[in-house]
Amino acid sequence: MPLSIDQQIPADMLPATQEDKDYFDEVVGGSHFARDFLDVLKPYAFDLVPAVNSRGMRRVDGWKAVYEATVTKDVTNFFGFMHGAAHAWLVDTCTSAAIVQNHAPGFWDGQMLGGVSVNLDMQYFNPASIGTRLRIIVTIERINSTLANLRCDISEWDTGKRISSGVHTKAWRGGKAAAAL
């Protein structure tokens, strides 16, 4: 039997505060794509954001975030299941939001806040119909001053049944290099 959501989310994660939810809405709210999906996508819990180190970066390898969403009709295909592009959009949006949650001055900030996608690879396991409550777990596998390797696992909230998974690679350039792009 799959683990319940409480068994899958570590007890030391911090529940998302209203401030976290407002910041998330501010960051992703500028997107015009999948507007209705943005209304049902919310942060749920985060690992503690580490302090900035002496090099101006954060050590966030292994950092996790949990988001929740509900499948709406607007993101389904002809058969009434969440469209593959909606899965990819969730991976892109949630992994980017995880980076933004951990940015610092001179580290994944500025005009390239959250970086730019280099690669996004998806795997699909099971369909998600309208009304399915989704648990989206993002892991920052590795991040340095220019490259981030991220993973996003999407499953049914209550059962833990895997729906899809994405691996996302993002790049970032700060300072004068960003202005030249």
Score class of each variant (00 low, 15 high):
2 P>D: 14
2 P>V: 11
4 S>V: 00
6 D>S: 14
13 M>S: 08
15 P>G: 07
16 A>M: 02
18 Q>C: 00
19 E>L: 12
22 D>T: 04
23 Y>K: 15
24 F>Y: 13
26 E>V: 07
29 G>L: 11
30 G>R: 12
31 S>W: 07
33 F>R: 13
39 D>K: 14
39 D>L: 10
45 A>Y: 03
45 A>Q: 02
49 V>D: 01
51 A>V: 02
52 V>N: 08
53 N>C: 07
53 N>D: 15
55 R>F: 03
56 G>T: 08
56 G>D: 07
59 R>D: 08
64 K>H: 14
64 K>A: 05
65 A>H: 11
68 E>A: 14
70 T>Y: 05
71 V>K: 13
72 T>W: 09
72 T>K: 15
74 D>H: 14
75 V>D: 03
78 F>Y: 12
78 F>L: 13
82 M>E: 01
83 H>S: 05
86 A>E: 02
89 W>Y: 15
90 L>Q: 06
90 L>S: 01
93 T>S: 12
94 C>I: 10
98 A>M: 06
99 I>H: 07
100 V>D: 02
101 Q>R: 15
106 G>K: 06
111 Q>E: 07
113 L>H: 12
113 L>N: 13
115 G>R: 14
116 V>F: 13
123 Q>E: 05
125 F>W: 05
127 P>W: 01
128 A>E: 08
129 S>D: 01
131 G>V: 03
134 L>R: 08
135 R>H: 07
135 R>N: 03
136 I>Q: 04
137 I>W: 03
140 I>P: 05
141 E>K: 15
142 R>N: 10
144 N>P: 06
147 L>W: 02
147 L>F: 11
149 N>R: 15
153 D>V: 08
153 D>Q: 10
158 D>I: 07
159 T>S: 15
162 R>W: 02
169 T>A: 10
174 G>F: 11
